[in-house]
Amino acid sequence: MNTFSNIKELLRALNDGRDLLTEMFKKRKSADYKYEYALDLIEHNENRIQYLIDRSVIRQNGNNLEIDDLYLQFFEQVLEANEEINTSYINENLEKVKQNIDYYFNEHNEQRKYEYLRVIKNTLRKIGVITLRNVVDLKRNIDNTFKSEPTFKNKKAKLINLDNKRKDITKLIEQTESLISEDDITFFKTAIDEELNRIIVQLKLQLQKCTHNLIEIERQVINFLNQIQQQSGVVEKLRQIKYLKDQFRLEAETDIKQVISINNSVIFEPNPSYPLKLSLEYLQTSEEAFASIKKIAQRQKSGIKLSQPVADKISDEYLETQIEEEIQINLEEVKNGFVAGSYNLFDFVMNYKFGKKVTFDERVTIYCQMVSQYETVFEITEQYSKKEEIEFAMIYPK
């Protein structure tokens, strides 16, 4: 089997076959995508199809073509169009985190310890994304199964299996929360890393969101199963009634006449009609009502001419132009003034005379904006000062 030698070759092949792959991906649920259809899309260039077949991007089965499972899974995951719930992948990543934590504690070289820490951070980030996708896919599959599956037994079996997937995801979420809990493991206390802390906070928020959605999914599954149970019971009774009717035994072996005679359900009554009177205001202001009135007038051949009411003249007050002025702070001008002096940046901003009233908090914001935008023209020292519980670096012009 031929393989791609580098990323460029892979991307070039996917780009050359983008029209074919796009069409095949749309019809991936169909098992009979003909070879002739592919020829029409690539202008009857069989070499391009053979090139993709040789490198296992697509597979040929007789006269039919299909995307290889590896690339199909990649497209579905990236486009979030996959329908398969893969809880084992979450479990594998959990085990990977645990293993790298052990490696981290056993390693004494700082560089290699950092490599293990980097793997742990990447894996934790993947766990959050994969869990969210699985919950979304689970909800979509449950809805599709209840609405699309025609067989009651298969519908019930599929919903039960999907509910088991929900329970598996819930257990994995509990294991993940236990793993990242600072009370249960010392790694997250000893491995002090700002990015790791952010990833853990984000992961906890993702898991909390998944938990809330799983509670709603559980309620939905229970509701669907109850509906299936009720529908299957009704269908079974109807089958029995039809069987007895076909055998001409319905009236003799059942009390259907007595049941129908005492049944006063609304479904057996004629639909009532109620006159609807439209308001005069609606008839005067609605375009649709005016069009209907004109149609009725044409049928009646009435000589009365209907005209729409004319709106009052717009007041000149609404047409007057109003100008609102707002003073903007020019950071470039403030920077030029600071560079020309010898004060430190914080005191300079605090004492600078702006064209409008600026509060202390707004001046602190201006100080931070100038540091971020004009860092190259400032000399940022390691000295620090403090004012009104705000600690700031001493910055001077270069």
Rank of each mutant, 00 (worst) to 15 (best):
K171R: 14
D246G: 02
Q231W: 05
R249Q: 15
Q240S: 06
I58R: 02
Q99S: 11
L196N: 00
V334A: 13
E389D: 13
N15D: 08
Q373S: 09
N164D: 15
V364I: 06
I260F: 08
F346N: 00
Y33V: 05
Q328Y: 03
T321W: 10
E46S: 05
K295E: 15
I85N: 03
R166D: 00
F338R: 00
R59Q: 15
R28A: 05
S273E: 15
E325L: 06
S307W: 05
G128W: 01
D54L: 04
N351S: 12
L278M: 11
V358L: 02
K242S: 13
N45Q: 11
N271Q: 11
E333K: 09
T376Y: 08
N2S: 13
L306P: 03
Q73S: 10
K147P: 01
E83Q: 15
T359R: 14
E391P: 09
Q175T: 07
V339D: 11
I215Q: 15
Q220I: 14
Y343P: 03
S342R: 13
G355M: 07
Y274H: 08
M24F: 01
I185R: 10
S148T: 08
E218A: 12
Q328N: 09
E218W: 02
D32F: 04
A13V: 07
L132Q: 13
D32C: 05
E216Y: 07
E23M: 10
E375C: 06
